[in-house]
Computed example of a mutant assay.
Amino acid sequence: MPLQNGARAAADAEARGKQPAAAGPRGRPGAAAVPLLLLLLRVAALCASAAAAALAATGGAALLRRAPFRLLLAADAIVAAYSALEAAAAAREAAGGATLLPEPVQLWFDFGHDQGFGYMALAAAAVAARDAASCGGGSAACARADVAVGLGFAAFAFLALAALLTGFRVACFLATGSRFAPPPPPPPPPSFH
């Protein structure tokens, strides 16, 4: 089983006879930026999907009688719940450096679910956008429908960016055995000639 949570870097440093670096994001320069960026993307996805679901729910009977807006409401409510749980996990990781689940499981879980829920939000927003285009226009319900669709697309965009970042973390894990990019090589020792 590969070493996890920065243990490989510590083992490599010990093998070279150096003091091991601290495990986790605090031991690597710039590594704390990825968990913080993930936290920001998760909170943004939560806000966009929750607002889209709220607008679809409060659009009145005219919107909720249409199947595409019921789908938008359900999809964005599910994405909001997922994003809230992932934002809490990302906050825990940013604060403590450790993942909630074992590292490989957490990385693949995040990567797969970001894609799945992102495409669910995209599909619901696309279907609702097609239906909103045939709206009578000018009414408050039509304006609310347009904003809900736009927020549904925004939720997809934030989840797509999070999927790119979690994909990078999976690639780092496959290459190095840790979710962090490998540290830069040490500078060569000075030569005195």
Score class of each variant (00 low, 15 high):
82 Y>V: 03
82 Y>I: 04
83 S>V: 02
84 A>I: 02
84 A>V: 03
84 A>G: 07
87 A>I: 13
89 A>S: 15
90 A>T: 09
91 A>G: 15
92 R>I: 14
92 R>H: 15
93 E>M: 14
94 A>P: 06
94 A>N: 06
95 A>S: 12
96 G>D: 02
97 G>E: 04
97 G>S: 06
98 A>F: 02
99 T>E: 09
100 L>G: 05
103 E>I: 01
103 E>A: 05
104 P>C: 08
105 V>G: 03
105 V>S: 06
107 L>C: 00
108 W>Y: 04
109 F>R: 10
109 F>C: 04
113 H>Y: 13
113 H>C: 05
114 D>R: 03
114 D>H: 06
114 D>Y: 03
115 Q>R: 14
116 G>Y: 11
117 F>V: 07
117 F>R: 00
120 M>E: 00
122 L>K: 03
122 L>C: 09
124 A>P: 11
126 A>H: 01
126 A>G: 08
126 A>C: 08
127 V>G: 09
127 V>T: 14
128 A>H: 10
128 A>R: 03
129 A>Q: 08
129 A>C: 08
130 R>G: 13
132 A>F: 05
136 G>Y: 11
138 G>N: 09
138 G>M: 09
139 S>G: 10
139 S>L: 08
140 A>Q: 14
141 A>H: 08
143 A>Q: 11
145 A>L: 13
145 A>F: 09
148 A>K: 03
151 L>F: 03
151 L>Q: 01
153 F>Q: 02
